[in-house]
Write a protein that binds this DNA or RNA. Structure first.
Lengths: 208, 208
DNA sequence: GTCTATATCGGGATAGAC
DNA sequence: GTCTATCCCGATATAGAC
């Protein structure tokens, strides 16, 4: 671990790695200390206890993902471009931080409160993103659909395969290399899939 | 907990509830014992240790999901009907057993081995399902697409919202009641979304 | 601030009575 | 088979020297 950083930063970096992979219950303070190249006691000196260290990591991680997402979906682009960019960003990001999403989902499942506060603290308003999507669906594609469904669809198509990667691999005996190819393909396949789906609504509005 | 059952079954039922919600690390033998209305020691008497109890629950749960999925996708129906039925079944099932999927994904993420064996033990061959989907894509829609992507898309659109439910709810401040409506809507929206997407490929084969 | 040593506790597992 | 009591380890947390 990088010696130039101050201890706080070294601990946080180690904590990120361990918590992301093992979650709160699975993580060991000892492992974090080892990874940070220092003693357990120091973790308590800098961050009172395991819980508050976890909270720091969680808030930081979640805020980062949320703000990036917000940034993309509130920018000035066509909806389809945004989807394209989101999937690309996300699949690249995830290949380096493979456990964050599952980490977030699990952490949330344990204590569903907060989280909205984390977002608001960053001056992000989730509803704005939805309204922006609604507006673009209407103006760019002439569709009057609940944007939440579309948003969830985008996430599902992007996020699920990443989270379920071990399941998919084990089930169909797919090598790591073929899995990389698979995710590379999805960068093109998913946007097309979504675009097709939305264009289908345009053709036959009775489906809405 | 039901008194008519034998102790083994009572333990298993309690173990299911607790493991599904909290995972291996989060679960407490004490909690399982309490829920089963008996003493911790009895859990060890019937199931040697925590690990093997967990394994029983996991294998059983996973096998159940897998066989149902296999049953649907290998049956004699159009692909679109299967998708329709799968989503309906799944969203109903999940509303009663809300944590199973996350449970499976997490368990797998911790130990990616086995699992294929569980499937094969049931005489299920995952690849058969894919080949069946490939065949139906070709014959019913004239599409020559990698069935794995389609399969993963179906799962993503169905499974993700369930797993991410707390996240969605907290982020957009959605009440439990509105969430029920949301999932009810998805039973129609998702099949249509997929159908549109696939029909889009028919129109413009260059997208494949 | 950083270390070693240790207190404390929760929880899985076992012994042994009934 | 089922219980109580207890063991024992792993892990968080703290005391205290340097």
């Amino acid at each position: 671990m990088d010696n130039r950083q101050n201890p706080e930063e070294k601990i946080l970096e180690a904590a990120r790695l361990v918590f992301h992979q093992k979650g709160f219950n699975g993580a060991r303070m000892q492992e974090i200390a080892d990874l940070a190249g220092m003693n357990k006691a120091l973790l308590h000196y800098y961050f009172r206890n395991k819980e508050s260290l976890f909270e720091k990591v969680f808030n930081e991680t979640f805020a980062q993902m949320a703000s990036k997402m917000s940034e993309i979906f509130l920018s000035e682009m066509t909806l389809m471009s945004k989807i394209q960019i989101f999937i690309n960003f996300y699949l690249n990001f995830i290949s380096r931080h493979s456990f964050v999403v599952q980490f977030i989902i699990n952490a949330l499942h344990d204590k569903p409160e907060q989280l909205r506060e984390i977002i608001l603290k960053q001056n992000l308003v989730p509803e704005l993103m939805l309204e922006q999507i609604r507006k673009q669906l209407r103006e760019e594609m002439g569709l009057d659909i609940d944007p939440l469904h579309i948003y969830v669809n985008i996430l599902g198509l992007t996020v699920f395969p990443v989270v379920a990667k071990p399941l998919i691999q084990s089930l169909f005996r797919i090598t790591d290399e073929r899995m990389d190819v698979f995710f590379e393909q999805r960068k093109k396949i998913v946007p097309t899939f979504i675009e097709n789906a939305l264009k289908g609504y345009e053709k036959d509005k009775s489906l809405l």
